[in-house]
Computed example of a mutant assay.
Amino acid sequence: MTVLASQPNLSDLQAVPRHVAIIMDGNGRWATLRGKPRTMGHRAGVEAVRRTVEAVAEIGIEYLTLYGFSTENWKRPESEVSDLMGLLRLFIKRELATLHKNGVRIRIIGDRARFDDDICELLLNAEERTKGNSRLNLTIALSYGARAEITDAMRQIARSVAAGEIRPEAIDEDMIASHLETAGMPDPDLLIRTSGEQRISNFLLWQSAYTEFVFDQVLWPDFGREHLEKAIENFAGRERRFGAVI
């Protein structure tokens, strides 16, 4: 990963979202179209992650959340899951020092219980090492499912009610949000999904209530700064009313 530029060139962009979330889709199709195994698509997808993190930081976006691995992805063939875990290990080991040097804070959301111990240790180390950084907040959703996240939040609140710590009447949207894994983060302003699919696949369901969506035909391994800027231009041209009349 190259050193991030300090001065973004935003002359052609009217507005920059504070928080961008991306569903990185299309690695397998990218590989199939080229007659390559799916694992090669995932490896190319890692390069797209590198490009995107650099571009986001240069543009000045504060928060980037990437859907790296869903709870449903565990159902994929064992060999593919194993390769994905290997790529995760490699990415953290190779990129952590550069990310830290460039002021990127790493945060992981999702259920870590199914990961091997060494991966859990790598994830924890990445979070601890970068927790003081503030240039870009990079959140990676791993073994993540929004329904499970919301369910777990409800369980936490229910236990507090049962213990007499809070009254049911005190439960509001802010309390629920504070029990989600994204507590303390702003909701996404813009969500991008690549590969042409037009669904959010159990990703940030609560947080995306008023998010703007852009569905791009490009397959994730081919995603670059030009696609990001096009999505931001699309976002900048929209009128966000949040349910009100302006």
Rank of each mutant, 00 (worst) to 15 (best):
residue 153 A to H: 03
residue 151 T to A: 09
residue 202 N to V: 07
residue 200 I to N: 07
residue 173 E to V: 00
residue 156 Q to P: 00
residue 172 D to F: 07
residue 157 I to V: 14
residue 182 T to Y: 06
residue 147 R to M: 04
residue 208 S to T: 15
residue 191 L to N: 00
residue 182 T to S: 06
residue 186 P to T: 12
residue 200 I to F: 12
residue 175 M to E: 14
residue 186 P to Y: 14
residue 153 A to F: 10
residue 179 H to Y: 15
residue 160 S to N: 09
residue 163 A to R: 11
residue 170 A to G: 04
residue 167 R to A: 13
residue 196 G to R: 06
residue 153 A to E: 09
residue 147 R to T: 06
residue 191 L to S: 00
residue 159 R to D: 15
residue 168 P to L: 14
residue 165 E to W: 07
residue 186 P to N: 11
residue 206 W to S: 01
residue 171 I to P: 05
residue 185 M to H: 12
residue 205 L to P: 03
residue 156 Q to S: 10
residue 216 D to A: 03
residue 207 Q to R: 11
residue 156 Q to N: 08
residue 189 D to P: 02
residue 178 S to Q: 12
residue 190 L to N: 01
residue 167 R to N: 13
residue 138 L to N: 01
residue 209 A to W: 04
residue 213 F to V: 04
residue 169 E to D: 14
residue 159 R to M: 13
residue 150 I to M: 07
residue 219 L to T: 07
residue 187 D to L: 00
residue 217 Q to N: 12
residue 186 P to A: 09
residue 176 I to D: 00
residue 214 V to F: 09
residue 170 A to D: 15
residue 150 I to W: 09
residue 222 D to V: 03
residue 186 P to S: 09
residue 171 I to Y: 13
residue 186 P to C: 10
residue 199 R to M: 07
residue 139 T to M: 11
residue 135 R to P: 02
residue 135 R to E: 09
residue 152 D to I: 07
residue 139 T to Y: 08
residue 150 I to D: 03
residue 220 W to C: 07
residue 210 Y to A: 03
residue 160 S to E: 15
residue 193 R to L: 05
residue 191 L to E: 02
residue 204 L to Q: 08
residue 148 A to T: 14
residue 194 T to C: 08
residue 214 V to Y: 06
residue 175 M to H: 12
residue 154 M to P: 03
residue 186 P to F: 13
residue 156 Q to A: 09
residue 148 A to E: 15
residue 146 A to I: 03
residue 169 E to W: 08
residue 219 L to E: 10
residue 152 D to F: 13
residue 202 N to K: 10
residue 168 P to W: 15
residue 185 M to V: 02
residue 212 E to C: 01
residue 136 L to W: 03
residue 202 N to A: 09
residue 203 F to Y: 15
residue 179 H to L: 09
residue 155 R to Q: 12
residue 166 I to H: 11
residue 181 E to K: 06
residue 216 D to M: 04
residue 150 I to L: 13
residue 154 M to W: 12
residue 217 Q to I: 09
residue 135 R to N: 06
residue 143 S to Q: 08
residue 143 S to P: 03
residue 213 F to E: 07
residue 180 L to P: 05
residue 186 P to W: 14
residue 194 T to I: 11
residue 210 Y to I: 02
residue 173 E to I: 00
residue 218 V to F: 12
residue 166 I to F: 13
residue 140 I to S: 04
residue 208 S to M: 15
residue 178 S to F: 11
residue 149 E to L: 02
residue 218 V to Q: 08
residue 187 D to K: 01
residue 206 W to I: 02
residue 217 Q to W: 14
residue 174 D to E: 13
residue 214 V to C: 00
residue 187 D to V: 00
residue 181 E to Q: 14
residue 197 E to T: 12
residue 209 A to N: 06
residue 170 A to R: 07
residue 144 Y to G: 01
residue 190 L to F: 09
residue 141 A to M: 10
residue 188 P to F: 01
residue 194 T to N: 10
residue 165 E to I: 01
residue 176 I to W: 03
residue 175 M to C: 10
residue 167 R to M: 12
residue 205 L to A: 12
residue 150 I to A: 01
residue 222 D to I: 04
residue 185 M to I: 04
residue 213 F to M: 15
